[in-house]
Design a protein around this nucleic acid. Structure first.
Length: 562
RNA sequence: GCGCUUGUAGCUCAGCUGGAUAGAGCAACGGACUACGAAUCCGUAGGUCGGGGGUUCGAAUCCCUCCAAGCGCGCCA
């Protein structure tokens, strides 16, 4: 059980005891808040319950606090000290033994420490990246990949059965543009020529695709081999070859980034399986459509949208969100009572439309299903200048370049360091520096440092396991601070998972590493006193375990040497 | 014009869902290695929490209103 929950239960029981004894008169108690004060002089934990009760008790907050504090001291041996402070806070100081007892728990649970069973094994699907196969993955996809992947790890750590899905937009206008662009290059056209396709893609990779196609190369993507027909007039063959090539490139980039999916869902399959037509028919049958100006409209205003939206254009084609609705109906029918879509904030407007379409289907889908996790845009700085991102012009930083230049660990950590809601300035020059500017080294160094201490310890025949019985010797401020931080890990993981906020993990790990480094500089681990040495090695074993667990959630390695 | 997100130290960002004197990391300045890795530590300095109202015992946090930035607002995807 989380430390905070333990305290909340104790407090709740004490309040009941006070009421039974006639010391408290309030008929009901407010939700009990156990907070960790910003200032350690205000205790390990504090509660504001006395201030909240002051009104119904018709007494001064501090007087109420006095009653509760007295009963707390009587009821539990957990507290070293209880104080009433400020306007009526009750501050708790826990016994050192309470913190010391956290260590065996960490070692016993090992890589499972920090996990919880909140999800109870229920199914959740997380869709992320879902890039169009019209070019290499860029830095924005990188942020989505890092966040999405970490959310999956967080959900798994909190007891959910996670399925990772990549939605592959292999149908539609953008793919047609891709094929036309490659064909144009095959025919020797260049951007600006009269015959160059409108909205054609101009990146170097298009030229490369054309060359490979004309050379009759073969590409292995997703288990099947596609061989180029080398015929510039065969647009369909060009399309298939280009998609296969880009798909393979994206897969390789994601693999290099440490991101893997359980399922790739092809947009084209929605059409070939008739799911799009079926969804549209069902919405029409439900009476949520009408014809106007030769198009079929969805009455999305019935579900909170600003205006109604066209589903089927006057030329007979569907608008982009229609297959999306069919896709999400399919997710629902696959039994995912919980679905999270991680995507860039520039696609924000799709949320209302997809949800409206799902409601119009009347399939029993909850109104706020699926959940969305949006990340804000990434701007790239290089050489002190902003790099403008434009896929059509072919000017952008690819995820692959980033991994090659910056390294996988630093790239992931950098993407995860701030909350998804904030815009991210990715300074490539800064991230490339393998210096303290990059916090990932700070955290990894703490891990490597512990590993080195263990090497030295082993050489002198001292072993961390032997410290289990000596934890009572760990009473230095720096040691207690570390144990308190250790005890907080499970609730940090829970909060990060619940709020979709990976940056809570990076902040936490940075603090833990900082405490470790401070301790290391202040105290000698391998000292004269054998018992104390073993106790400290035992402490470091727990710290190392948590550094590993935390970094694993981020998908960042925990090196033993650097 | 409308919607979403953001605005906190010179820079990049936290702030535990309304708590006590607002915190880190860079950058600046001054210190600490003849013992476990100095990729580290200790200290100093740095603030009208975008502005203004409101809610209450108490607001960076909640409400209103301005200001500024980013992203959306198509029979494009």
């Amino acid at each position: 059980m989380l430390v905070r929950d333990t305290l909340r239960e104790i407090l709740k029981a004490v309040l009941e005891e006070c009421r039974a004894a006639g010391d408290l008169l309030s008929g009901s108690f407010p939700p009990l808040v156990i907070e960790t004060p910003a200032d350690p002089l205000h205790g390990d934990f504090a509660t504001n319950v006395a201030m909240q009760l002051a009104r119904t008790e018709r007494k001064a907050p501090r007087a109420v606090a006095a009653v509760i504090a007295a009963q707390l001291a009587k009821s539990s041996a957990l507290f070293a000290r209880i104080e009433i402070a400020g306007p009526g806070f009750i501050n708790f100081y826990l016994q050192p033994s309470f913190w010391q007892q956290q260590l065996p728990a960490v070692l016993a649970e090992g890589c499972a420490y920090g996990c919880s069973a909140t999800g109870a094994g229920k199914k959740v699907q997380v869709e992320f990246v879902s890039a169009n196969p019209t070019g290499p993955l860029h830095i924005g996809h990188g942020r989505g990949a890092a966040i999405g992947d970490t959310i999956c790890r967080l959900l798994a750590a909190t007891g959910w059965h996670v399925s990772r899905e990549f939605y592959y937009n292999d149908a539609g206008q953008q793919i047609a543009n891709l094929a036309l662009s490659v064909q144009a290059r095959c025919l020797g056209c260049e951007p600006g020529d009269p015959s160059w396709p409108a909205d054609g893609y101009q990146g170097d990779y298009i030229t490369e695709l054309a060359r490979a196609y004309l050379a009759g190369e073969a590409v292995d993507a997703d288990g099947s081999v596609v061989t180029a027909a080398a015929d510039p007039t065969d647009l369909e063959a060009i399309r298939r070859f280009a998609i296969a090539c880009l798909r393979r490139e994206q897969d390789l980039d994601l693999l290099a980034f440490g991101v893997q999916f359980d399922n790739y869902f092809l947009e084209s399959s929605l059409y070939t399986d008739g799911l799009v037509d079926k969804a549209v028919q069902r919405i029409t049958d439900n009476g949520y459509t009408y014809e106007q100006d030769g198009a079929l409209w969805l009455k999305s205003t019935a579900f909170g949208d600003d205006k109604d939206r066209v589903m089927r254009k006057s030329d007979g084609g569907y608008t982009y969100f229609v297959p999306d609705v069919a896709y999400h109906l399919n997710k629902w029918e696959r039994g995912f009572v919980r679905v999270v879509n991680e995507q860039g904030a520039d696609h924000h407007s799709t949320i209302t439309r997809v949800r409206a379409g799902l409601q119009a289907l009347a399939a029993g889908v909850p109104e706020n299903w699926p959940e969305y996790l949006l990340h804000q845009m990434v701007t790239v700085m290089r050489g002190g200048e902003e790099v403008k991102i434009s896929k059509r012009a072919g000017s952008y930083v690819t995820l692959r370049e980033l991994i090659d230049e910056v390294g996988r660990d630093a790239t992931r950590y950098f993407f995860l360091m701030r909350k998804p809601d904030s815009q991210l300035v990715f300074d490539i020059d800064l991230a490339k520096q393998q210096s303290t500017d990059n916090p990932v080294y700070y955290v990894q160094y703490a891990h490597a440092r512990i590993c080195r201490i263990f090497e030295s310890a082993a050489e002198s025949g001292r072993h961390p396991e032997a410290g289990a019985g000596a934890v009572a010797l760990l009473v230095a401020v720096e040691e207690l601070d570390i144990m308190k931080q250790i005890a907080a890990f499970p609730e940090i993981v829970a909060a990060a998972a619940e709020n979709f906020e990976p940056h809570r993990i990076t902040s936490y790990l940075h603090e833990l590493a900082s405490l470790l480094h401070s301790f290391y500089n202040r105290h000698r681990v391998l000292g004269e006193d054998a018992a104390l040495t073993e106790a400290r090695l035992y402490l470091l074993t727990a710290v190392r375990q948590i550094l590993r667990n935390g970094l694993a959630i981020l998908g960042v390695s925990a090196p033993e040497k650097m």
